[in-house]
Nucleic acid binder design. Structure first.
Ligand SMILES: [Zn+2]
Ligand SMILES: [Zn+2]
Ligand SMILES: [Zn+2]
Ligand SMILES: [Zn+2]
Lengths: 140, 140
DNA sequence: TTAGAATTTGCATATAATTGCAATTGCAGA
DNA sequence: TCTGCAATTGCAATTATATGCAAATTCTAA
């Protein structure tokens, strides 16, 4: 049977308290003082465990390492590929879509932290003022 | 200016021809015979480049390494966390949602390969026949 | 063509993440 | 409380991915 050990509890508590996205290393740095024996393997394994239990979520926002956060108020993100800004999307805006897909494909969706990439309004405008520069050999 | 080099072109061609999801290593193995000097660093850098150009897409389906594929017919996936099965979702089913979010947040969505995790119908039923087993200390 | 500038590649190295295994810890039952 | 089993952890080693830099390649324009 699986166990909620000291390491796992402290890691979860940290994410829950911080209420911020943290990388595995940030979690390690935050918990280490309270659990000096803590090892990076344990951090990785605990994060995987907590994710699997649905207590935290992990997201790759394309900049370096994946980030983890406690699952409390379900939400999602828009990540701008231009300025790297991360916006929050309320679950309310996504719910309907999930339900539709669930029904259509008879599939229960667990994903609770959707990451959508694209361009924010500012970056889109900035880009419109440049001529497209495709690699030459791919030009029509 | 960026260049469509031999390595990049062969890597893209491989993904385009195969029409399958491939890991970085599978791409390497497939291209190496035609370009013996090929190096894994180049594979990783080329895949990153092609992704950035929007020619291929990358997805982490939770099983081992990320997988790459040519962007041709836009589609998405449902990944069952029980049996690991990967279903295809037509873009038609997603389009409306993307448009709604785009308008609501004034954000141009580029994401073209959405991965949603959950449970397929079979695995959901299988699970319903088990008593939930939460870690003891988290029980209410 | 050919020279020169700019980009990309290979290689070596660094960093991130995973895994096998023995030691430790947590839990259930006596 | 104590005992014994099973799950977890630390550590070392492995694998996956990223990066600095010099050499090679590609492109441009003379
Ligand atoms: Zn978030
Ligand atoms: Zn932006
Ligand atoms: Zn796909
Ligand atoms: Zn399934």
């Amino acid at each position: 049977m699986s166990r909620m050990t000291t390491a796992r509890a402290l890691i979860y508590e940290t994410l829950e308290t911080t209420q911020e996205h943290m990388t595995a290393y940030q979690v390690f740095d935050a918990v280490k003082p309270r659990l000096p024996s803590l090892n990076m393997s344990t951090v990785y394994r605990s994060l995987e465990y907590l994710t699997h239990e649905g207590l935290i979520s992990v997201a790759d926002v394309g900049e370096g390492m994946p980030i983890y956060e406690a699952v409390s108020n379900t939400h999602h993100h828009l990540v701008c590929e231009g300025c790297k800004k991360i916006l929050i999307v309320e679950h309310e805006q996504v719910k309907g879509f999930f339900e539709k897909i669930s029904q259509e494909y008879d599939f229960t969706i667990h994903t609770n932290h959707l990451i959508l990439f694209g361009l924010c309004e500012k970056c889109r405008r900035a880009k419109e003022n440049q001529s497209e520069e495709l690699p030459k050999s791919l030009h029509p």
